[in-house]
Amino acid sequence: MKGNVIKYERDNIDTDVIIPGQYLKIHDYAELATHAMEGLDPNFHSKVKEGDFILSGRNFGCGSSREHAPIALSHSGIKAVLALSFARIFYRNAVDGAFLLPIEIDEDTYQSISENDEIDIDISSNEIKNITKNQTYKMKPFSEIIGKIIDAGGLFKYKAD
């Protein structure tokens, strides 16, 4: 998975800024995506490209259980969010609907990757290559359980062993 990084250097990016409440009535995902991150970064829609990644701090996706949050990011082209940690409901929603990968990274990795860096994520080896900076980092591996749901392509496709 190769793409460029959009970095938000802050903790607690909440679901109300990822997709503000007034847009929860929109059922067309392409239209929903035009409002992704609008509460924090009104330029997000014009700068995001298919295959991009978001990089942010701790507790990404805190707040509401709205699945519209990972859906809006996913339909904007975001394939993965890299963060120091995630709020649990956002994490589950992202994985359950197979919308995007929530990837936990450590502080050094967070500091090393800059806005616009091109990175290559390999979840089979848990490695993140920074092509721009020619560096390699380790991501936190998915738990066995989460890995199985991701491999299955979401909650509905998952069956217990």
Binding site: S64, S65, E67, I89, R92, N93, D96, G154, L155, F156
Partner: peptide, 10 residues
């Protein structure tokens, strides 16, 4: 506890 829409469907 709260759940997302995929889980609501489930």
């Amino acid at each position: 506890f709260g759940i997302g829409t995929s889980e609501v469907e489930h």
